[in-house]
Design a protein around this nucleic acid. Structure first.
Lengths: 364, 364
DNA sequence: CCAATCGACTGATATTAATCAGGCGTTACC
DNA sequence: GGTAACGCCTGATTAATATCAGTCGATTGG
């Protein structure tokens, strides 16, 4: 339901008015002066504001001034309430940007119709519906999480059906690469996009000291190596196979053609990348202020959701490089988790998260 | 320039008023009754309508009724003009959805400030989505660094020249926001893109413990707040002003239209985002394995390149939150750098990098 | 004008996680 | 079949950095 913020210093009028509004079915928040009103507006985000003009601490004009300046508040319909019926007072209020002006005393119907009038007006003025024709919120569901690009597979099927990019066809030869092989290295010029048919691939960056940070982990059905292609720069990371894999190569030109041919694709890529930026910034935040234990837990949970069957099969070194910690520290933390029955480890070293809820919630 | 439609049956008042408006720089179309007014509104698409109430053929209420029903007309600011000063007349007009109500006789300043008031109000509130036409894709400078979006400015100029997205025009009102104000907060639904005209803005994320990590720093000429718009999600960061700033709002719909109208633009955005992903991953690598000293040095160098004049004017708290370390640690490191003559600090706390080469090379 | 607040800074201490060193079991290989 | 190599793990030590507690000076507000 609509939330209305009522700012009025007179206790009787305020309570009376609030009661009327509540009877009419609105959720009402009240404030007894302008300052409190603004504070409440910022926290409650009302759908409409009714504000008296003459008030102590901060008057109605001041409140509206602040509303106009604060981007979070500007869009909210604003109705002045005043005992003054003089034309100049009215004009001052309107010129400041009020949307209606009610004079006291008013009766119920005046109040309610004024509110309805403004709500209707603003709904007309501010079209709610997503411009879906413009912004494809597509059937390409981003189910694989922002890190993966499974929707591209779907897209490629479509592209194939249209038949204008034959080189994308699945008849393409699969390339077999054995484990622990570099697919491309930092500094290489990108020549193609990779589609992972089977196996696992990690992408990593390394620093001057030879330490590695794993930036991505790819499973069958994922594409990788697109960052440098999109950025039109050299690879800034390396891709390494974790086990024996089957790859399909999509030549750079084909990919770029694809990208330009259909606006929906570029829109999808924009979405994908924006999501990835957000994810990385989140990680950065965690890296800065979360304890090692917390970061291990977060990474395990992320993998738990991504990995098939929820079983994490990854060497301790790689896992540590994903989290950005020393391998020993990871192992110690895993042991602790195991003791707490939060995870289980098999003889082969694979990890299974047993109590994701508890792992998520426990705060150190 | 803004086009105003004036609907008024009295010849003298109509011509007189039109003259005033023209002198004020508006393009004015007139109509001598409601019927003609509506017809003219449909063909001319005015930016604002001033309409008398008592008129032959079709009165003002009727005109507004039609405006409310016709989607093409609903978004236009509508001001009533009337000789009636009775409260009930005023309320009837407002309840019908008028945006202001001027009583005759009025003087020039009343008229003009009422018009300005509504135009400003509507720029805050609404984007009226114009049907997009595709314009020739211009050549965009690719030199702008990945962190900034200055090329968008160039693009917007082009868009303006073609003139089909008027709402992007520089005539847009600047919004002033004082320092330390939130422009948007984590979790807010994005409603617009922000263009920073003057001042400085930071974007930050905060974790459960209330700690903040500064993810971006924006200078005049930058755009910000686009991540959530592109991702089609809620804001995952907050934007806060560091000093008094001037902002220009670009409504969500306008921006999205813009983005899809021209493949060159989406291509630019893809590049921008891909670059930002790379940057963030680089930061992540540094965060994991570089010493605090190294990270401070890197951040200083980054800011040295970005900030105008190379002078870094930033509170210690914000700088620490950018690097992701404790404020005290930062201050200690800065003191060390100062002792080593790598940087200089003014009394006001601003930092200047003196020997970028040495700062870059020294390896700890 | 004084008190309160804030930002820059310093010293002492506590905590965390990296590093070093090594054990133990399994696999790979001559 | 022996041994070298490797992956997983543990203990002790050490280095790095956060935290706590406060000073000092400048600015702000009543």
């Amino acid at each position: 339901m609509m939330t209305i913020l009522l700012i009025e210093d007179n206790d009787i009028i305020r309570e009376n008015t609030a009661e009327i509004l509540e009877l009419a079915g609105y959720t009402v928040h009240t404030a007894e002066n302008g300052k409190i009103g603004v504070e409440r507006a910022l926290t409650d985000k009302p759908d409409l504001v009714i504000c008296d003009i003459m008030m102590p601490v901060l008057d109605g004009y001041g409140v509206l001034h602040i509303f106009n300046k604060n981007p979070q508040l500007t869009g909210v319909p604003f109705i002045f309430l005043s005992a003054k019926i003089e034309r100049t007072d009215f004009r001052k209020g309107m010129d400041l940007g009020a949307d209606d002006y009610l004079t006291k005393p008013f009766d119920e119907s005046e109040l309610l119709s004024a509110i309805e009038g403004r709500i209707n007006r603003f709904q007309n003025v501010r079209p709610q519906p997503e411009p879906s024709a413009v912004w494809p919120s597509p059937e390409y569901d981003r189910s694989g999480g922002p890190a993966t690009a499974r929707w591209l597979e779907q897209f490629m099927n479509d592209a194939r059906q249209v038949g204008n990019l034959q080189s994308l066809s699945t008849e393409r030869k699969a390339h077999f690469v054995r484990k622990k092989q570099y697919i491309y290295s930092e500094g290489d010029e990108p020549t193609r996009l990779y589609f992972l048919k089977s196996g696992t691939v990690k992408t990593l960056r390394s620093n001057a000291g030879g330490k590695e940070f794993v930036t991505g982990l790819y499973n069958p059905g994922d594409f990788f190596g697109y960052l440098a292609l999109l950025d039109n720069s050299d690879h800034t990371d390396s891709a390494v196979t974790l086990d024996d894999v089957e790859l399909i190569y999509i030549p750079k030109v084909d990919f770029q053609q694809l990208l330009l041919a259909d606006p929906a694709v570029s829109a999808q890529f924009i979405k994908l990348l924006a999501g990835r930026v957000g994810e990385r910034e989140e990680q950065l935040l965690g890296m800065a202020y979360n304890s090692l234990r917390r970061r291990v837990a977060d990474t395990l949970l992320r993998l738990h959701g991504q990995q098939p069957e929820g079983i994490i099969q990854l060497s301790r070194d790689d896992l540590a490089a994903m989290i950005g910690i020393a391998t020993e520290s990871l192992i110690r933390t895993l042991s602790e988790f195991k003791q707490d029955r939060l995870i289980e480890m098999s003889a082969s070293g694979s990890i299974q998260v047993m109590q994701p809820e508890k792992l998520l919630r426990s705060n150190w």
